[in-house]
Design a binder for these strands. Sequence first.
DNA 1: GCCAGATTGACAAGTACCTGTCAAAGTGGG
DNA 2: CCCACTTTGACAGGTACTTGTCAATCTGGC
Lengths: 147, 147
Amino acid sequence: MTALSDRGREFSALLLEVFRVNGLLLAAGDELAEPAGLTSARWQVLGVVDHGPCTIAQVARIMGLTRQAVRQTATSLVRDGMAEFHDNPQDLRAKLLALTPRGRSALRQVERRQAAWANDLAGRIALAELRAVTGTLRDLGDLLEDR
Amino acid sequence: MTALSDRGREFSALLLEVFRVNGLLLAAGDELAEPAGLTSARWQVLGVVDHGPCTIAQVARIMGLTRQAVRQTATSLVRDGMAEFHDNPQDLRAKLLALTPRGRSALRQVERRQAAWANDLAGRIALAELRAVTGTLRDLGDLLEDR
DNA sequence: GCCAGATTGACAAGTACCTGTCAAAGTGGG
DNA sequence: CCCACTTTGACAGGTACTTGTCAATCTGGC
């Protein structure tokens, strides 16, 4: 029987905190996006397309998701008039997803709210602590990716 | 136009790391659970029921999920012979979810694998760092919960 | 004992992801 | 030019969660 070591227990506590904070951040993101008629997923897709129209496959690669996930979100954005597909002279299959004026204004609105929220929260945590956590999490992420 | 402060940018970097590590942890959990015919969600429900049979509503409260989410997972566990519903003399509506021998052995198998995995990873990160990250994340979580 | 209100499981529908499969379109080697 | 390989969007189906609604059951105050 393999039991948890002391370190293993400390590590498990970290896992639970990551899950908890992740859930709270997602909820905060949805709350930030909601007044603009968006959700976290829709807002993030709009954010990518804001840098320039791109295909579903390109957005998926940038966001680290599958094409299918992005397609679903893109379809709903088009349905709601936030984005539209333009013909792509480079590739007949892959139309370019682009912001509509309505999508752009919704995105700007969320970005403003998000910045105020991030500035506020960031001000309540010591900068050194902030950097230390980010560093350790990055190391942990690399460790997890390596296997 | 509200822009991100320096601290806000540092905070945003932390957000991305939390999302990344969360995704990697979920993937690792599914990988750990898969050989036993489980998933992260199914394994966690079994883990709760292992402490003693309880109703769907009780499991949901313990896990911080809705009854509906737990009901779905519980139904699939019962379908696969990992758990079963027993009549509850205290409440005619709320049957008690309990482990079957097969569910118990699957759970034990995952717990062994999970402990070895956690011990291994925990050994690669300094204990002080581990504690510091957990502490800061807990503070951040409390901050997020307060609003 | 009864009735109001809370709790519970079930059902419906929606969001956000996933995998697998397919045909159409693009790309490069001989 | 053509044929193999890759990329792409679309479709089907699955997982894991959500909210809202409903009727049945439990619980506490009078």
